[in-house]
Amino acid sequence: MFETWKGGLNYTREPGIEPFHGTTTVGIKIADAVVLAADKRATAGHLIASRTVKKIVKITDNVAMTIAGVVADAQALADTVRAEMEYYSITAKTKPKVKNYANLLARILFSSKWFPYIVQLIVGGYDDSPRIYSLDWYGSVLEEESFTSTGSGSPIALGVLEEGYRSGMSVNEAIELAKKAVKAATMRDSASGDGVDIVIIEKSGSRELTVKFT
């Protein structure tokens, strides 16, 4: 599906220099927390380029973002948004909400619609309540009420989430579900694998977990 971004241009695929595309990321929102999860594999064509990639980027202590797509694009976006919002929160004397981060990202993505950042992002965080937003490379932004998944493994992960998510889940249950969803995707999607990174964002702050597959 990433072939469509070129907007009709003929782009010669060269195995080996293909940017990192394959990924499974998951975002789950429960009553008092957000759980973000992602696999740890980076691929370049048929090569497994890394087994220890971190696909969840912390933007501030209460906002994080999962990356699917071209890593350089996602990192550039994360750095820009972090810098913009840091400056904004100092000059405007306000603590930005998760929505503000998602909205700014969407503006940047949309403004480069014809030469896009090739990313699918899940922005998760806690302001006055937990929130998750999903964004695509054209700049659409959607607030998700329960869960979402992006990347090449997302069809598989979504099946697991659809089956396992229920309202009133505890944080630990949500972590287990996120783990299960990413793991299921890694079993069938060759571009995802090697382990799961998990970031949990609660009112008190955020923490990280890593589970390696052996």
Partner: peptide
């Protein structure tokens, strides 16, 4: 509003 999705604070506008 366009950039951040929320209304501006009065002090930030004044500034």
């Amino acid at each position: 509003k366009l950039l951040y999705g929320d209304p501006i604070s009065i002090e930030y506008l004044t500034k």
